[in-house]
Every structure is written in structure tokens, then in C-alpha cells.
Computed example of a mutant assay.
Amino acid sequence: MNKLHYSLEEIPPVLLAFLALMLLIQGTWMFQDARKRDRFPWLWGLWGITSLPGPLLIYWLIVIRTDRKRQAGSKKNR
């Protein structure tokens, strides 16, 4: 078999459990943070459990970064 492809039998169960735990933590955190910010929590939470770390980076760019810019702009206008 090609060295770049692995079957599930070749991957240690501890690594699979760690990956599942990290995906669950990421999805849960994204859901809770999006709910706090009122920004489509179910979308972000479900997408957060699909892969690592892509959804988290995009969430940071779209939601967190824009909220920080908006808050900084509102403080300047006061």
C-alpha cells in the first residue's frame, strides 16, 4: 500500500480518541461563543466538528475579528 494512505486499522486508537475529543471541544466552544455573539451557533458548532483547525480559523476571521473591529469603532465614536 502507498505510504501516504493509512487504513483505520493502522492508526492507533489513542490518536483517534484524541482527534475525536479535539473536534468535540472545538465544535462545543464554537457553538457556545457563537451563541454568546448571536451569530448562527448551530452552523458554527456543526461545522466545528467536521475538521480541525480550518473552521476555527475561519470563525476567528469572520466572527471574532469583525466583532473586535466593530467594538473598537464604537469606542472611538464615543
Rank of each mutant, 00 (worst) to 15 (best):
P13M: 07
L4W: 10
R35D: 03
E9K: 09
W44A: 08
D38H: 08
L4N: 15
Y6T: 10
E10K: 11
R39H: 05
L52E: 04
S74Q: 14
D67Q: 15
L8M: 06
F31P: 02
L4A: 11
H5K: 10
W42R: 11
L21Q: 10
Q71G: 01
Q26H: 07
N2P: 13
V63C: 11
K76S: 01
K3T: 05
L16V: 14
A17V: 02
K36D: 05
A72M: 07
R78T: 09
G48D: 03
R68K: 15
S74V: 05
K75D: 11
E10A: 09
A20C: 12
K69V: 08
N2G: 01
F18R: 12
F18C: 11
E9T: 08
W47M: 13
K75Q: 08
I25C: 12
L61F: 14
T28G: 05
L8K: 04
D67R: 15
D67S: 02
I11E: 02
R78Q: 07
F31S: 01
L46Y: 13
L15P: 00
V14I: 14
R35S: 12
P13Y: 04
H5E: 07
N2H: 14
Y59P: 06
G27H: 01
L43D: 03
G54W: 01
L23V: 06
L19M: 12
G45V: 02
L52R: 05
P55G: 03
L57V: 09
I25A: 06
G45F: 04
N2Q: 07
F31C: 05
L23S: 10
F40S: 14
V14Y: 03
W60R: 13
Q71V: 04
V14E: 10
M22R: 10
A17N: 06
L16D: 00
M30L: 15
P12I: 00
V14R: 14
G48E: 00
A34Q: 02
L57R: 01
L21K: 03
I64W: 08
N2R: 06
I11C: 03
I62D: 02
L46Q: 03
P41H: 12
P41R: 13
A72D: 04
L24K: 06
D33A: 13
T66C: 03
G27T: 01
E9S: 10
Y59I: 00
R39T: 15
L8I: 04
D67E: 15
S7P: 03
L56R: 05
P12Q: 03
G54F: 14
M22S: 11
W60K: 12
S51Y: 08
F18I: 11
K75G: 00
H5T: 15
W29T: 09
Y59F: 09
I62T: 04
I49E: 05
L19G: 09
S51Q: 02
I49D: 00
L24R: 06
T66K: 13
I58F: 05
I62C: 07
K69I: 00
P53T: 05
I25H: 03
D38N: 15
